[in-house]
Structure formats: structure tokens, C-alpha cells
Design a protein around this nucleic acid. Structure first.
Lengths: 192, 192
DNA sequence: TGGCAAACGGAACAATGTTCCGTATGTTGA
DNA sequence: TCAACATACGGAACATTGTTCCGTTTGCCA
């Protein structure tokens, strides 16, 4: 989005560089599905048929690669917020639906919820991106539900997002249903 | 507990071995506080003044070491369950208090909540121990609350424990209060 | 006290993240 | 079209950490 046109400062990348970036994105997407977002850098490189140096040149941290792979889906989730608020029976229902969207996204990305909470430096950008993009949306839904007197008012969006993200960890365990636990949280938000 | 006496099959360990085990336990406890339960094995070994081989001989996996260090506290938590049930105003209140006890324990052990959810082989025993010891207690409290008609009946103890454990991840973040999120879950359990 | 099994220490190996630099290649100006 | 140069590439090399293995040391018992 930043350099689609004839960028004034960005001198346009070499053709092979653009091609490799594309190839890497595809390879990473497949590798993430097969082995989770923790898949070794070497594996992604091998799959894409490039050296590890090429990965680090295009995506300095693992977070950059993850963000690039999932950007579209995160955007879609963010944009769904206002739409749900518009079309749902109540703000609380909209909030619940939207959180479910987020949960669905997370639980289908093996290891992503874990990475999201990691405090390793390499995941800093990932954390920041998710929070920057989704917390405001969540906040809007929370505010609407609070204004409608449907939920308590002592919960911050950033805390809720983080909690929900946490609850999605280990969602592939058959004894654990992240959605059900998240539903408890949403229920707990209600004023009674 | 298994070999306190003059065990019939266990041939009693050498004095230096017993001493080292003690030293290691102390060193690990300090290291866990300072650097979290993910502290490198070498660091613990160095602190205890032994070789890494000695650690692995006494504690084959990191989980064994963690369990040994925290066993007393976990036992205390487990034993508090029935007491709370006895002394609290209601089963739901007892459940809430007990979960808080568990949360207090977890959030003060840097990295333990993360380790608890990890599916790495090395943490298998840790997971098993916590679940074996605490899930029954939690189940007892849940059953009592359900019998008193205070909570919904569609929540399994193992799922609740796991969810609560998850919520305790990253509890040192100032923007995130694990206790508050757990409180939402407990509130969500209530029948209304 | 001698001998032996137990225990020790730490080198060595494996997996993985990350950096760095010699080489290859796309691009551009002539 | 071609030379020159900046860009990009590949992968060796290094760092960190877990784990194993074996030669050496040491406690214990006869």
C-alpha cells in the first residue's frame, strides 16, 4: 500500500527481490499451516528455495513475516467490528460475535496465540500490530455495550483482547474448548 | 514420600547425591525467582556449583525440577480447597477464593503459567502433576456450586483450570490484570 | 583399606536463531 | 548492447540452549 505507485522516496525494488518476497510469503503461509508459526526459519527458506539471509532481509523478525501472512485476515476482522455493531440485535451481541470472529481466527493458526503473548523481542511487532489494529475496534464495541448498559464498565479493551488471546492458547487440546471459556468471559461482562 | 523410610527396593542414595539434590533445589528456586522457570540449565548448574550432568541425573526434565521446587505450594493449594468449601459463605464463594489462591500462586512464578500450557515433551510431567493434583479439587468445588444451583453445569474442571492457567500468562504486564479476567470467568459461571 | 558401584563434571553434539560477507544478478546510463 | 554498480542472494559461521555420554572421582561397605 505504501509503494504501489511510483513512490517518491522508495526507489522500487529489484524484480528478483519482489519475486522472492512473494515466494517467501507463500512458503511461510504453507509452513505455518503445517508446522505452526514457530516453524524453523530454515524450513521456510528451504521450502521457498532461498537462503536464510533472504528471509531476514525481507522480514527482519518472525513477527514481520507473520504479520505479512495474516494481514488480510486481521484487517477483515477489524473491519467486521463496525458492521456487526450495525447489524446485531444489541451491542453485547455484536461484541460477542466479534470476539468469536477473533477467536476463530486465532484458534486456526497453530501457535499464533502463544506468539502473540510472548515477550520475546522478535514478537514485539506482532503484538503491536494486533493491538494497534484490533484494540480500538474492541474498544468501540465495549463502549457501545457499556452505553447500552449491558456490561460493566471496568474492563479495558486491551485487557479483554489480551485475555481472549490467552484463552486461545492450546486450543488444539481436545479437553479444552477456548470458545467456551471465552464465552464465560463475555457472559461475565454482563451487568446482571 | 515414597522413599522416606528404609525403602525395601530403593537402596538409599549416596550422601553427596542427597546433598547435591538439596543444593540444586535451592539454586533452582533462586534462579526461578530471578530469571523465571525458563532459566537456562547451565545457569542453575553454575549457581549450584555442579555440572549440567548432575542436574539431568537428579531431574531428568525441567518439569521434574519445577515440580520439586513448587510441590509444597501446590499441595497447600490443593488442601485449601476443602477447607474453603467448609468455611465460605457459599460454594461459589469458595470456588472464587480457591481460584484466586491458584492465580496468586501462578502470577508470582514468572514463566510458570506459560510452561504449564506448553506442549513440549519436557513439560509433560509438569502439566500432569498440576492437573492430577488440582483438577479434582476444582471439580469438587464446581460440583458443590452446581449442586447449590449457583453455577451452570456445562463446565469441566479440567477446562476451567486450563483457562485460568492461560489467563495467568503474561501477568507481569502492567496493562493486564490476570485476576480481573479470571474474575470475569468466575462471574460468567454464575446462573443468573 | 581395597574395590566397586554410584555419582560427578563437562566436553560434545543437536537444534535453532541471527549475522556477515563473498558472489551473482538486475538495472541503468552510455 | 554492454559495462559498471548497487542491490540482493546464499549459506557458512557464530551464538544460545537443551541433552547425552563417558572418563574420572568419590562415598560406602566388606
Amino acid at each position: 500500500m505504501a509503494e504501489s505507485g511510483s513512490g517518491s522516496v522508495a526507489p522500487r525494488k529489484r524484480a528478483d527481490a519482489r519475486r522472492n518476497e512473494e515466494t517467501l510469503l507463500d512458503a511461510a503461509a504453507v509452513a505455518f499451516v503445517e508446522s505452526g508459526v514457530d516453524v524453523p526459519v530454515r524450513d521456510i527458506a528451504a521450502r521457498a528455495g532461498v537462503g536464510v539471509g533472504t528471509i531476514y532481509r525481507h522480514f527482519p523478525t518472525r513477527a514481520d513475516l507473520i504479520v505479512a501472512v495474516y494481514r488480510h485476515q486481521v484487517e477483515a476482522c477489524a473491519e467486521a467490528g463496525p458492521v456487526l455493531l450495525e447489524n446485531s440485535g444489541s451491542p453485547h451481541a455484536a461484541l460477542a460475535s466479534w470476539i468469536n470472529l477473533f477467536v476463530d481466527f486465532l484458534v486456526t493458526k497453530h501457535g499464533l496465540a502463544e506468539a502473540l503473548q510472548s515477550d520475546q523481542a522478535a514478537f514485539q511487532t506482532l503484538h503491536a500490530y494486533f493491538l494497534d489494529r484490533l484494540v480500538p475496534v474492541c474498544g468501540q464495541l465495549l463502549d457501545a455495550a457499556a452505553a447500552a448498559d449491558e456490561i460493566r464498565t471496568d474492563t479495558e479493551a486491551v485487557e479483554l483482547m489480551r485475555g481472549v488471546g490467552n484463552l486461545c492458547i492450546g486450543a488444539d487440546n481436545p479437553q479444552y474448548d477456548a470458545r467456551r471459556m471465552v464465552a464465560l468471559v463475555i457472559a461475565g461482562l454482563r451487568t446482571r
